[in-house]
Design a protein around this nucleic acid. Structure first.
Ligand code: NAD
Ligand code: NAD
Lengths: 207, 207
DNA sequence: AAATTACTGTTATTTTAATAACAATGTTAT
DNA sequence: ATAACATTGTTATTAAAATAACAGTAATTT
């Protein structure tokens, strides 16, 4: 399945899987495209198209087999061995992230957290050990951690990103307000809640 | 300026403004499109095009006047009177949001927080009072709060959204993992960090 | 058994977003 | 004074994403 999927399809696949896992725990084993669509507020065509792109095929009268679809999506968006993730900066946001991810059934395992404040280190958060950031580069290399979430204050983000890059990280999800510069081989995704909120405000205003 | 702007342009305008405010506090009063572009990791053409769309014009040798541009963007994405915002659910995520927004110079004012846990209510977080959620509908109506950020656990999110809608809220930014159903006149923006992270993981895998 | 229904899967079309191309213009160098 | 340069603003083109259209098909109804 080395076919390149559209960006947006990748995002939705992750959402489909989450919704399907819910569905499953509700005891439902088959689902129609329009049901998935309703769960996510998108159209059924979109759902079918995405599913077509990953090469899965439902049955005519029953729709999609929930287990199978979850599996196939996993084959696409997970690696076989899983990927290790670290969270840098265990303030409010860092803890929210750890809490949210813990227990989610996924091949993305948060295996370490790092903070520069000794009061926060050498403790367990949501089942994950938090180390002092002095050890960050070493642990990332030794553990083979490939993905990092940055939730430190803006003024430290650039330095953290440099260290991460040197330690061989492959992907960064950045929540700090400072847009980062990383080499092209590091995949970078930035996110800002203020932007989201201002967007909501703008579109509220229009109506 | 009732011209309809593309979705993505609106997002970027918010980012430009944030970057420009930084620039300004660094004592720089003029900026070129390619400088803005570098700050945000986008292209200069994109920047110029967005700025064209809002009808602002720079000077040829100096580029854009930072103050003026900040102002113009404000005219576009803010309302004159400002809009009031409430945060529902003051857990780790709620507190991270409050901390992040506080002190940001914007016409979006977080004026109230709400939580159902009496241990958390009747306190001040990042300068904003937290009330018990019993009073939510009343306060939202009386204060004229038009935008809400939902950061309660999934199982309560639907109910909170219903109450908010009934209280007359106009826009919702939802961080709970439960996709919400709201009437069409309420602008809804959902966000999920797990999706973001899985996307990073997917694109890391490819390389 | 024919028609109808309710789905899926796929191609075609439209819409939205990004990029490229380039004219216009003041600035600096020669 | 002229040429080269660096920048903006805008139009043209391409790319990405979403939507629409519709063919195919098993089940159900008449
Ligand atoms: N992008 C967004 O949407 C968004 C939302 C909320 C917060 N934020 C930003 O995220 C960051 C964290 O927010 P928060 O509320 O958790 O803040 P916080 O102050 O509670 O936490 C920051 C943590 O980072 C740690 N830290 C500082 N320097 C470090 C370093 N070099 N290495 C490791 N750890 C270090 C601190 O000890 C602290 O524990 C802030 O920059 C904030 O502006 C962004
Ligand atoms: N979308 C994302 O990216 C993302 C990231 C992290 C967390 N989350 C989700 O956000 C939510 C909050 O995360 P958290 O880490 O802050 O959790 P938390 O448990 O620390 O906080 C939840 C807070 O909501 C309050 N609450 C519960 N019911 C309420 C109600 N009806 N009205 C008002 N307040 C109520 C609780 O008292 C608590 O203070 C969770 O659902 C979590 O899954 C989402």
């Amino acid at each position: 399945m080395t076919r390149k999927l559209p960006d947006k399809t990748v995002e939705r696949l992750s959402q489909y899987r989450r919704a399907l896992l819910n569905t499953l725990s509700g005891g439902k084993h088959h689902i129609f495209s329009h049901e998935i669509a309703n769960l996510l507020h998108i159209t059924a065509v979109q759902v079918r198209r995405d599913i077509m792109l990953i090469g899965y095929t439902g049955t005519l009268r029953q729709g999609y087999d929930v287990n199978e679809l979850i599996d196939i999506i996993g084959k696409i968006i997970d690696t076989r061995e899983g990927q290790k993730v670290a969270v840098i900066g265990i303030g409010n946001l860092g803890r929210a992230i750890m809490g949210y991810f813990s227990g989610k059934r996924t091949r993305l395992n948060i295996v370490a957290a790092f903070d520069s404040n000794p009061d926060k280190t050498d403790k367990i958060y949501a089942g994950v050990p938090c180390y002092h950031s002095d050890k960050m580069m070493e642990i990332i290399k030794n553990e083979g951690i490939s993905i990092a979430v940055i939730s430190v204050p803006g003024e430290f983000a650039e330095k953290v990103a440099e260290d991460l890059t040197m330690a061989g990280i492959k992907g960064i999800l950045n929540f700090s307000p400072k847009p980062l510069n990383v080499p092209a081989h590091v995949y970078l995704q930035e996110f800002d809640m203020l932007t989201m909120l201002e967007k909501v405000a703008y579109f509220v205003k229009k109506s």
